[in-house]
Design a protein around this nucleic acid. Structure first.
Lengths: 204, 204, 204, 204
DNA sequence: GATGAATGAGCTTTCATTCAT
DNA sequence: AATGAATGAAAGCTCATTCAT
């Protein structure tokens, strides 16, 4: 659906042809997560990307589709972290390492973290965006499931405990993204531990 | 749920004492927390309250002020719970009882919970609304501070741990408001315990 | 039409019963000539008069009729000056004395002068207001006609020369009303002389 | 008079180069000076220009700014007349020739004359519009100053006497614009002479 | 691909007027 | 006579989207 145009290198093109779509995505992402979706106007988005207003519609069907396109890319980015994590590691260790990687993202690219974790624009997400997030959550639940079968996670539904864990990690990511706890390793570790404490059968 | 008060069928309803403003607040609150602030139009709000559009502006300076007015009332409502809680009780017990009272509110009046805990309309809150919330948070922090001086709460800033606790209670309230965990005492208790586990020095 | 209610002294009445209509007129006149008709809202007018909004409509059919009522009274006030001037005096002398009396009004009650001479709300005047002004102008023309038959006024239509004279006197009244030329007898005399010079057959 | 330009009947007119803004200005000017600023609605203005309502705001920030834009252009137009007048000519001759040129404008384009001379929308003019008019008046005063130093103008401030002269010329322009004195050379000359007589030291 | 003037539906807000009390 | 809450038509303005160039 949101097929990425192959952007083959062609003959004559104006201003940085490879980049138009990317610059649009970047500008919109910053705007959406800073001032909000409704407050971000298409003129503003176009201006940020250095293109004309109409150009948005060469790359995206609508403003809403632009948002969904950005959202799904962001979700996938975080999903990668889980999928490329060490499958052999224990549940606790995996969660910790994933959380730490996300924190790095939060420090370097706050916008993407806000979009997925802090203030997801629920009202505006289409079916496919919601599906993408569910898939992402499924990956987390799978990690927790291994911990549960090892008796490390509390009784009760895995879905619930991953919600709990995610909720606390979201708080961490928000604070890091806001530079409230900039590069404060100790505090970050405290929250990561707290998140584990909240869901662990025998907290250490 | 949002039962329309039985307006007697008259030619022109006038002087519904005390009613108009309240019905406006109720309708707007439901709309804002259901479909969102920007998606709620003034015609819709007026229709819900059974009044003409212009009537909104007899009671509120603007749509934004209407939101802030509702928000502040909602915050104060939750603040009451803390202020009227047993001052003699321990930190843990106070937090638990407060959380349980809020859960009841979440079940009976989901809208108010969503506005304050689940999706506060941060971009749209004025100075005085933000101050009201800060005061509310201050009350929570005071409770936690007593627990901390009793050695029950982890080391680190009280602000941080109340953020953590609130974050988890918000999840609970959201689920209850969404009727996902309706009247499921056990699950609610699990979350309340988890919230305490996350911040407790020696979790039990 | 604009029948003045007889305001008979009755038994029980709220706040200064004789004065309501008058205070309405006064407040509206000040507002209209200060900030303009369209910029003056009925709530403002009512507030100035210290009455409720609805009270305006007990005394006047509409905001527009209120304006016309005020306008006609103002015109009549200036008309009086001409009608009570010494019929035996010469044209020049009559005009001068009339102009001087109007100047006094301009100093004491600038609003009324602005309404009639400086910025008459032409678009908003009804038939009867226009007729009143025409009658007023007729009185001036009659004075000029005597001067003309005495050979003191230039050839050409009396209507035209009274327009010219009025135009210059209006400038004087505006300046006096604005306190630009406060109580500056010399300047006022200069303008009055200039007005005569403009229309006189043999200016002195 | 305000002949609608022969828009060829197309499905959707686009790119009427240079035209849209001008037609908007023309339409608004006619409307403002005919029925008044407040009475002219944006739908009306757009309709006159044959464009959609939103198009107004592509060219002007607001209705008020549209007015000011028109006003300033109009003032500059009259200013040109003075600045291009024969610098070598005497004061009296310069004023006469300027007045006559303005009369021609009044006959051909009444709207512009009404806006600047007859009923300037004072309440609605912004700072820069007021400055433009002051500059214009300064040019007139400069002409009068030369006459004064040649002993042709009465004693007293130049500002005052240019107000007087302008006041009478405004009357002329109004009548011409209203077609009351259409192409009546004699009457126009009478007023121009009267204006000079009003300010001249030794009227001839 | 890119442009940007034009669109028009729909928004929030204002305010003269009405009328039950 | 006086009130003031309620009205609702109409205003000015915004902005996502289209399309001729």
């Amino acid at each position: 659906m949101t097929h990425t145009p192959p952007t083959e290198p062609h003959k004559k093109r104006k201003r940085d042809p490879e980049g138009t779509r990317d610059r649009l995505v970047r500008g919109a992402l910053d705007l959406f997560t800073t001032i909000g979706y409704h407050e971000s106007t298409t003129p503003q988005i176009a201006a940020r990307a250095g293109v004309a207003e109409g150009t948005i519609y060469r790359h995206f069907k609508s403003k809403e589709q632009l948002l969904n396109s950005i959202y799904q890319a962001a979700v996938r980015r975080f999903q990668q972290t889980i999928r490329t994590s060490d499958a052999a590691a224990g549940c606790k260790e995996t969660l910790e390492s994933v959380a730490r990687e996300w924190s790095t993202v939060a420090a370097n690219d706050p916008a993407v973290v806000r979009l997925v974790f802090v203030r997801p624009p629920r009202k505006l997400l289409d079916h496919s965006s919601k599906a993408a997030f569910k898939e992402f959550k499924g990956d987390i639940e799978r990690v927790l499931a291994t911990g549960k079968s090892a008796g490390q996670v509390k009784r009760g539904s895995v879905e619930m405990w991953s919600d709990v864990w995610l909720q606390l990690i979201s708080l961490l990511l928000e604070k890091v993204a806001d530079s409230d706890w900039t590069h404060d390793e100790t505090t970050a570790d405290d929250i990561i531990s707290a998140a584990w404490a909240a869901i662990a059968a025998n907290p250490t």
